[in-house]
Deep mutational scan, measured.
Amino acid sequence: MPVRRGHVAPQNTFLDTIIRKFEGQSRKFIIANARVENCAVIYCNDGFCELCGYSRAEVMQRPCTCDFLHGPRTQRRAAAQIAQALLGAEERKVEIAFYRKDGSCFLCLVDVVPVKNEDGAVIMFILNFEVVMEKDMVGSPAHDTNHRGPPTSWLAPGRAKTFRLKLPALLALTARESSVRSGGAGGAGAPGAVVVDVDLTPAAPSSESLALDEVTAMDNHVAGLGPAEERRALVGPGSPPRSAPGQLPSPRAHSLNPDASGSSCSLARTRSRESCASVRRASSADDIEAMRAGVLPPPPRHASTGAMHPLRSGLLNSTSDSDLVRYRTISKIPQITLNFVDLKGDPFLASPTSDREIIAPKIKERTHNVTEKVTQVLSLGADVLPEYKLQAPRIHRWTILHYSPFKAVWDWLILLLVIYTAVFTPYSAAFLLKETEEGPPATECGYACQPLAVVDLIVDIMFIVDILINFRTTYVNANEEVVSHPGRIAVHYFKGWFLIDMVAAIPFDLLI
């Protein structure tokens, strides 16, 4: 008679799926529990143990900040960024110097990925580790590398530091407007667009060049630039800015003055950032001319202004700041037409079709709590990747769950009947059967004279019903998954307890 339990259901295979997918890609990662103190490590794979030199037993239950890997060259700011990422709910990448158990130093890129439950609360953290440099290539500990984003994938490793954006290309926007319009339909740009040429040739750093990471940081200074100062900065030398009595002219307006920039070969870094931020506020060169004239017309309804409409929906549905990093990277690809469009465009503009998908598509409701890094690593669709929660398995109709209350009560009843059979069957065979043979035949009273025979008949009927119930009862397979398919249940029961239950259900007393 089957006594099969499996009270692990309803099970959740999400954690096993993450481990299996990460292991298949030869990654070095740990999984931490966000619900406990210090976000203790609950799993670390073999790749991480080989990377740091510690065994799994030495890593388990330690804080996922990996303070046991810190050393003299470990930056405090990087460690603080990892700790801050564990307090938030967004994906974050941090470069930090770690030390192995043998004392060797290596520069590592740590990717902190939160995993949320159905309520939107962070319950786990996945920390992925990628070695960037070994100890002989690690720089000085005073050099802070965590304020910069990861290198873009479309640049060669040897040319990542030679990417320079020439400031004269930004200063000569109005001069290039006529050349853009003359391109017409034969050019790649839309009317009114501004073409910015980027020099990728390796050259020595000069005062006129600005690194790509500095251009990325310009967006942080746009908020500090007032509207009046932006307007004066875009007017140009024809209309000098008016300053109040006793007030000095704005240095932001002076930063885009061609006369002032041409007199000296070098520009201050602050002026460069502010000038680029001011130019980015204009949607095209037409807006710059309109600002000089004193009238700013409404933005025209053409394809170039609607190019950012799908980007707005993608940004609203993005799951991490990696989408913004990807957008900034692609927006700086050289030799393309940049349409400086305000994100607050007309909502009635139709979304044009684009061959290049900048932001990841909208994630469906079932995966809105899973970050983009987890979705990318697992390579699963929205119909396959579940949320991290207890999910009731989908069972067929008329199927009994093996952990249901009805099955528990039924098993206790069958257990009592088995005990009765084990006690009274030998007793009936030894004593009652002998008395029946010696006594007179009682054929007239039937079952009324033999109450134990009636009980034995009921017990046999219950055993037959138990066999039928076992054909529709779920079970737990070797992978700790609840199986509810009727065919698989029948095959599993035939290979197991079916023969024993059938022999126990045969009414031998009635056959004798």
Rank of each mutant, 00 (worst) to 15 (best):
H309C: 12
G345A: 07
R56Q: 04
P10N: 12
P297S: 07
Y99D: 01
G262Y: 15
Q61D: 09
A83D: 10
I18K: 01
S263C: 07
V279R: 07
R20N: 08
S283T: 14
L171G: 14
A83N: 11
D323K: 08
V384G: 04
A160R: 09
R35Q: 14
L155T: 14
L378Q: 04
R92A: 13
K116E: 06
Y43G: 01
H309I: 09
I126Y: 14
P157D: 13
G192I: 01
K135N: 10
P352K: 03
H254P: 12
P310V: 11
V198T: 06
K166I: 01
L171Y: 10
D199R: 01
T367C: 03
R252W: 05
R27G: 13
E372R: 10
G224L: 14
L51N: 01
V112S: 01
P151D: 14
S255L: 14
A268L: 11
P157A: 13
L311N: 15
F348Q: 14
D219C: 06
N369S: 14
T270Q: 07
C66S: 01
C52Y: 05
T329R: 12
I82W: 01
E289P: 08
Q25T: 13
Q81D: 15
S283A: 08
R280M: 14
P347T: 14
T145E: 03
N220T: 06
S153V: 04
V3M: 12
L248H: 06
A9V: 12
T305L: 13
N317G: 11
Q75P: 05
I96P: 01
V138C: 13
A268R: 14
E214I: 05
R328S: 14
P202T: 06
D287V: 09
P258V: 09
A204Y: 01
F340N: 15
L343W: 12
R242L: 12
L248P: 08
G187E: 15
N33A: 07
R62E: 08
E208K: 01
L225K: 05
R281V: 11
F125P: 01
L15M: 08
R273G: 14
A193P: 05
G47H: 09
G224M: 05
L170D: 14
T152Y: 15
I288Y: 15
R164S: 12
P352H: 02
C49A: 06
R301K: 08
G120Q: 14
I30V: 13
L51Y: 01
N220G: 08
G88F: 03
D199F: 01
Y54S: 01
G184E: 06
R92K: 11
M308C: 11
L248A: 05
A169I: 01
T319Y: 08
P151S: 09
T353H: 07
E230T: 07
S261Q: 06
P298M: 06
I359D: 07
S153M: 04
V195A: 06
F348G: 13
C265L: 08
D67G: 06
R312F: 05
L315T: 12
A277V: 12
A223Q: 05
G226T: 07
D346T: 05
P347L: 05
D219E: 06
D355Y: 07
N146A: 11
N12T: 11
R56W: 01
L324K: 13
S179N: 09
V131S: 12
I336R: 14
V180A: 13
K161L: 03
A307C: 14
N339F: 01
Y43L: 01
P347Y: 08
C39I: 12
E130R: 06
F14Y: 07
A85L: 01
I358T: 05
E23D: 09
Y43W: 05
P245Q: 05
V36S: 15
C276E: 10
F68G: 01
E118A: 11
H70K: 06
S275D: 11
Q335F: 04
R77M: 14
P240L: 13
A190V: 13
S178G: 08
N339G: 12
P157K: 15
K161E: 14
Y327A: 12
F14L: 07
V138K: 10
S206C: 15
S239D: 14
G187S: 15
N257I: 07
N12H: 15
G262T: 09
A89R: 14
